[in-house]
Amino acid sequence: MLLIDCPHCGPRDENEFRYGGQAGIAYPETPASATDAEWAEYVFLRDNPKGWFDERWFHVHGCRTWFTLRRHTVTHEIWNP
């Protein structure tokens, strides 16, 4: 059970959150002009690194805020700058 530091509520157990996958995947500005390949890149393809990973979490049972954190996918360490 990870301990996740919600920017609003402070440290809470992982099961109060919903995982939101890789962070920083912006919605294409003009989807209509995206090629099929570009669109597939946005919809389907995500990084899966062994190591540090920026990912989104949603504090579903708390303040209902989406936020980004950096987690190490091997050690589960969470980056605390």
Binding site: C9, R12, D13, N15, E16, H61, G62, C63
Partner: peptide, 17 residues
Amino acid sequence: CPIDLHPAVFPGHAQTL
């Protein structure tokens, strides 16, 4: 309730489980 309810830590109210 999984959160820390110690009087010195608990802020007075919280949404949790």
